[in-house]
């Protein structure tokens, strides 16, 4: 790109070919079967990259710049077609899983939970984090459903107080 900006047409042509492959993949992954649109978007984005190449900051990496252009074109495309895309959630399983295991969040959780008794901690984890029913969680902690409900309520109240204390 740098040589392209300085006017080296051959290097620039090679760069454009490389970018068009990358963009084709990028759009194909996001548009699914609409193949004509993919090629249109690739051309649109490359044209924007060409006419707006002055906006590329030489000190920055090239790919984020190109993908930012592509992303804008993609959003524009969706908006124009008023497409609501339903992305299969399986594709994002990695992403979602990674998110829930955010080490910083886990650390915060441990810190806040550390003030609870072991039984309360187990109840909160089972019901609020793992989504078990009160009866199931109660059975694990050898409590009746009603007792589990009361204990959980107390634990949550205590957590709220502690969390408030942390914010203050």
């Amino acid at each position: 790109m740098l040589r392209g900006l300085d006017g080296d047409a051959q290097a620039y042509r090679r760069l454009l070919a490389l970018l068009s492959d990358r963009l084709r993949l990028y759009f194909a992954r996001r548009l699914g079967e609409a193949r004509d649109d993919v090629e249109d978007l690739v051309q649109d984005t490359l044209l924007a990259a060409h006419t707006r190449r002055a906006t590329y900051d030489r000190s920055q990496p090239l790919t984020p710049w190109v993908y930012a252009l592509g992303r804008y074109k993609l959003i524009d495309h969706w908006r124009r077609r008023r497409i609501r895309v339903h992305l299969p959630i399986e594709d994002y399983a990695d992403f979602l899983a990674a998110d829930s295991h955010d080490p910083a969040a886990a650390g915060d959780l441990d810190r806040v939970m550390s003030g609870l008794s072991a039984q309360h901690q187990a109840l909160v984890r089972d019901v609020k984090l793992e989504g078990l029913s009160l009866a199931e969680a109660g059975a694990r902690a050898s409590l009746s459903e009603g007792a589990a409900k009361v204990a959980l309520h107390r634990a949550m109240k205590r957590l709220t107080e502690r969390a408030r204390g942390h914010e203050d």
Partner: peptide, 14 residues
Amino acid sequence: TDDLLDAMAADLRP
């Protein structure tokens, strides 16, 4: 797309 790329490379000014 290839033609477009050629055209853009030809249009290149520093």
